[in-house]
Design a protein around this nucleic acid. Sequence first.
DNA 1: TGGATGCGTCGGAGTGCATTGACATATCGA
DNA 2: TCGATATGTCAATGCACTCCGACGCATCCA
Lengths: 112, 112
Amino acid sequence: MEANENLAFDALSDRVRRRILAELGREGELTATEIANRIDSVGRTTVSSHLRVLRTSGAVIERRDGRNRYYSLDLDGTVRDAFAYLQSIMNRAVGDVPDAPEQGTRNERETG
Amino acid sequence: MEANENLAFDALSDRVRRRILAELGREGELTATEIANRIDSVGRTTVSSHLRVLRTSGAVIERRDGRNRYYSLDLDGTVRDAFAYLQSIMNRAVGDVPDAPEQGTRNERETG
DNA sequence: TGGATGCGTCGGAGTGCATTGACATATCGA
DNA sequence: TCGATATGTCAATGCACTCCGACGCATCCA
């Protein structure tokens, strides 16, 4: 859990990356270019770099279709780890923190 | 919410700071020296600097007593903001994420 | 009152990371 | 096949942050 937690917050430590995650959360699936168009504070190259970090750390999923690459949140990945971490420290202090949502209901563990 | 969210993840972006928060979550209240003793990868000065960041960003509360300063999590502060952020992006994607705990009224929340 | 303890802050050295333009690769359309 | 589009990657640059020793201030104890 320690390693995952570090990975998770590394991914979340950058403002642009959080912005990307928020967009993906809102839209579901977006291409790299679409994301870059929505965030005009940085260029396409920068977005691409951040997508690499998010991909490597397990925060987003990439789906290829022709020359497009669609990105979406990986809700079983690092975002969930970060959620779990915050949950755990709040839990110890309050003792009444709810669980993360049941994620497995939408994709029946295709990996196998 | 944007500003708070940035503050929150800035505070959480460092491994030592997360370590400190975890200790505070586990122990409830600790002095700066106690925290430094529990984290031997860095010195007391470093811990003090991180505590400053955590204090400034609203992640921890400081209570003074004589020459000691006791730190504890501020569960209505940035930790909660970070929780809320993750919640919101997971919410949009899953639509089934529970709320953070009610910090101020936890006495009434009798879990059935 | 004088020494010890707890703790914050300052200044500087070292390090890591974000950003970007240029370039490479693969796919689409005519 | 030829150009346009979508996207990743590389190398260089500059900034921001971490870490620590030294110092200062307040508090406690004898």
